[in-house]
Simulated scan of single mutants.
Amino acid sequence: MSLTFELDPAITPALREGVLTLWADVSNAGGSVGFVPPVAVDDIRPELVKHFVAMAEGRTRLLVGRDEEGAVAATAFLTFNMHRLMRHWLWLYTVMVHPRHQGRGYGRDLLAAAEESARTLDGIEAIRLTCRGGIGLEHFYGSCGYKEVGRVPGAIRVAPGDDRDDIFMLLPLT
């Protein structure tokens, strides 16, 4: 079974809780989505509120993947670059697939849905994202067509003595 993707779903209490639960489960499984385990839903809530504010202001779009039961199983936030000289590309943030669904190709499906969504947006010529080094994410994104375009060594401190590279990836759409 595959996921069903929707861009800009209605923000309901069920969706909010689904995204929060997904984010906590991904983080606690070691996913590199802005937190390190252990993390609770209440730790994540302020970050999700920031995403929702950006959505309300028209700066961010939410892509949700739902499993066969209708549960939130994957997300990505497409965030417009607000710098006047860089509006031709957007950022892809908080790219997540629930751990119970990993290994089924859903990450590739999510990235393909994000690319398809970005192609529908006027003036968008590329997608940029960053990923944490040390766990091979750059290889996964590379296999999905993204190219590494920059790296800041040791920019992400996961824990004392555990610094990771911040890797910049780009997917041209033109």
Rank of each mutant, 00 (worst) to 15 (best):
81 N>Q: 09
164 R>H: 13
16 R>G: 01
158 V>P: 14
118 A>Y: 01
92 L>D: 05
119 R>L: 11
76 A>V: 02
74 A>R: 04
46 P>K: 10
70 G>C: 03
24 A>N: 03
84 R>D: 14
165 D>M: 11
122 D>P: 15
127 I>W: 08
43 D>G: 10
55 M>A: 13
169 M>L: 15
105 G>P: 15
38 P>G: 08
156 I>G: 15
38 P>A: 05
99 P>S: 07
173 L>N: 03
162 D>G: 06
52 F>Y: 14
119 R>P: 01
32 S>P: 15
25 D>L: 04
13 P>V: 01
160 P>F: 02
12 T>G: 03
108 R>L: 14
9 P>R: 09
81 N>C: 08
25 D>Y: 00
146 Y>W: 12
91 W>A: 07
101 H>A: 07
20 L>T: 00
174 T>V: 11
79 T>M: 11
14 A>M: 04
145 G>I: 09
6 E>C: 09
97 V>L: 13
118 A>I: 03
27 S>H: 01
133 G>N: 09
127 I>G: 12
170 L>N: 12
123 G>F: 03
63 L>S: 02
12 T>C: 14
155 A>E: 09
24 A>Q: 02
33 V>K: 10
57 E>I: 00
120 T>G: 13
171 L>H: 07
124 I>A: 08
43 D>Q: 12
159 A>Q: 01
65 G>I: 02
115 E>F: 02
54 A>N: 06
103 G>D: 03
23 W>Q: 08
115 E>V: 09
93 Y>K: 09
154 G>D: 05
68 E>Q: 10
96 M>H: 06
